[in-house]
Write a protein that binds this DNA or RNA. Sequence first.
DNA 1: GATTAAACGAGACGGTACGTCCTGTCTTAAT
DNA 2: ATTAAGACAGGACGTACCGTCTCGTTTAATC
Lengths: 209, 209, 209, 209
Amino acid sequence: MAVPAPSPRRLGRPRSAEADHAILDATRGALVELGWSKLTMGHVATRAGVAKTTLYRRWAHKSELVVDAVAVLFDELELPDRGSLRADIEGVVLSFAALLERPETKTSLMAVVAESTYDTALRARIGEAIVERQKRLVLEGRERAQARGELPPDSGNGEETARVVDLIFDVIAGAVVHRSLVSGEAVDEVWARSFTTLLLDGLAATSRP
Amino acid sequence: MAVPAPSPRRLGRPRSAEADHAILDATRGALVELGWSKLTMGHVATRAGVAKTTLYRRWAHKSELVVDAVAVLFDELELPDRGSLRADIEGVVLSFAALLERPETKTSLMAVVAESTYDTALRARIGEAIVERQKRLVLEGRERAQARGELPPDSGNGEETARVVDLIFDVIAGAVVHRSLVSGEAVDEVWARSFTTLLLDGLAATSRP
Amino acid sequence: MAVPAPSPRRLGRPRSAEADHAILDATRGALVELGWSKLTMGHVATRAGVAKTTLYRRWAHKSELVVDAVAVLFDELELPDRGSLRADIEGVVLSFAALLERPETKTSLMAVVAESTYDTALRARIGEAIVERQKRLVLEGRERAQARGELPPDSGNGEETARVVDLIFDVIAGAVVHRSLVSGEAVDEVWARSFTTLLLDGLAATSRP
Amino acid sequence: MAVPAPSPRRLGRPRSAEADHAILDATRGALVELGWSKLTMGHVATRAGVAKTTLYRRWAHKSELVVDAVAVLFDELELPDRGSLRADIEGVVLSFAALLERPETKTSLMAVVAESTYDTALRARIGEAIVERQKRLVLEGRERAQARGELPPDSGNGEETARVVDLIFDVIAGAVVHRSLVSGEAVDEVWARSFTTLLLDGLAATSRP
DNA sequence: GATTAAACGAGACGGTACGTCCTGTCTTAAT
DNA sequence: ATTAAGACAGGACGTACCGTCTCGTTTAATC
């Protein structure tokens, strides 16, 4: 996954899996205590009880290391069936907001996105490790709503469907991230309800012929 | 504004307004050529033909400098009357996206937002210099739509109005930023139309009693 | 003297004599507290309650300022008649050593001499303000010894006399300075007696035909 | 010696001996071209093709670096047997003066001595690396003169001997340094002869019972 | 069990930028 | 014209990190 096996050869001493964990743990810990900009490779290495070479053998840049360290937190997001599309959306908005409130993610997400604007490899890694994996939540919620009859079934046009999913994803994730990190205001139940109402109405109308 | 007068006293040589401009110009130029992460205070100073001390006397951190240098670009955003609420929204979405495509803003915005998560003074500066000032676009578009009869008049509840404006702002800005910088896909006319449809329908429904 | 009148004209506000004293006092004080290398023009100005311009108008360089500040201390050296040439020499050795033990002079003398090796103007200033004025002690002691009959009278050859005086001056001052500042050992009565014995015997023999 | 092994451990990459030489060579070169006061750590590092950190890892201060760089020049001083005590003294006086005329030593010696007045570690380093090692010349010349019968043999009292050696050392070195650097006049054959006469007579008398 | 080759810790390395300090000059208004 | 105040260009400081390197030392899989 994030730390690809260097080659199928198996000569010499194998890499330490312990070191991998220690480094990622140390990275998350350092993010909490220092934030993105004061986190250094040397500090992470020391904190993980590992030599700098061991760290650089696995991750060439701080941004890649942080993406991998933080990605796992995004995987914790889930979409339990709350019984209605409205409840599901409000739920995911609130749990996404809660995730963004954690110091590890708060300080990292924007930073790696910023870094990625000039680094296509990093952009790909972010897309793969974080962004794409969150779209599953939209897909899942959508299918469930279709099963409930809250949304019309797929048009059969896969491209069209992908476009809609992307749009909804950008609207939900974008609004939450912007409110939380840019506007710097709390994403609470009140806001989640207003936002969900707006989105539901938009979706309902869009779904009409 | 950005560089507040240090005090009403008038002792000693006054600060050079030329230097202010040269520094902000140099900052924008360096952002274009080097991007956020390779921009250094020393480089900006050299480029501005100014000593580093002169720079640090005004801006203690690179992030504050960049906020001030970039804020003016956001002020260039305008909302010409395109005849309908739909046209106005599509217009602002596209011109905001165009702004985010400029190299000066592309990396900077996310980077300073990232920095602001651990620096409340910076967060305030961003809010004041960038975020709050862009809400005027939402207000303006809304009033115009109300005048056209496309949206119902204000409820008279100022707090309620502010909440709605904030929501719309976060949804529009958030969706555009997310699509453009996080998802890394183009904000083109097609997307703008889909997004606007979604938003308009949401607004229309929300406005119904 | 050390601070030459800028010109015989007397237009505009006259220079403050208070400032002169304050600056020289502050310089000596700073030398005591900080030593030569940590003394700065800005610090002296602040300590003297004077603007930097006021300081630079009088002394262009730190070394010149220090020479003037310290020269006055060397003028305090005196040669009271102790009754014999031996006693006079031992006296001047000990009082010169005592002067070199003061922190103002200890830290300054070698420093300005070092500086003067690449700065002929400074060398001249040191020669004039410090070195030449101390030769009076040698001259005085010599004349007194001649009056006592301890040394033969002048040969009448002025050049010859000057050469001898210079030699004795360099030997006495050099030995004391070297012992005190380079070797870093105390110039006490025991050493002064040994040194004086050596010098007297040398002089006596030299004076014989 | 000058750069003590940091510890007997042998962990990590060992320090580069090449770097040591390059730095000391660069220091001497910079002293020749720039003199003490314009020599900077950064310049030396660049000239040596070495990072500043590499330099600071070995020498914390410019003065210590210069002491080590210059000490080796003092070791070049030698005392070839010139056949008589008089010739030996005249020889060492002239060659010491020639050494002090070299641009590397000219400013450096006084400067580091000045610095050492407020820095006991530096004083110790100077004592060890320069001062103590030059006393060998006095010892050597003295033994040779005793072998020739020009001076009486040692009294057997080691402390007494050390005191005499120190005295002679301070008188010779002090007089030459003072004439050359403080009085700023040439140490030529004429002066050397006068000084040697004075010293020999003093020694002769001192040696008499 | 010995060999082999990569991974490991430690830390030195060349290099870049940092943010501060000092220098000596200049620009204000006040005296 | 001099003063206090303080901004200015410039340059060096000593430190912190970067990413690479060079050591001597494990640690498995292979021979």
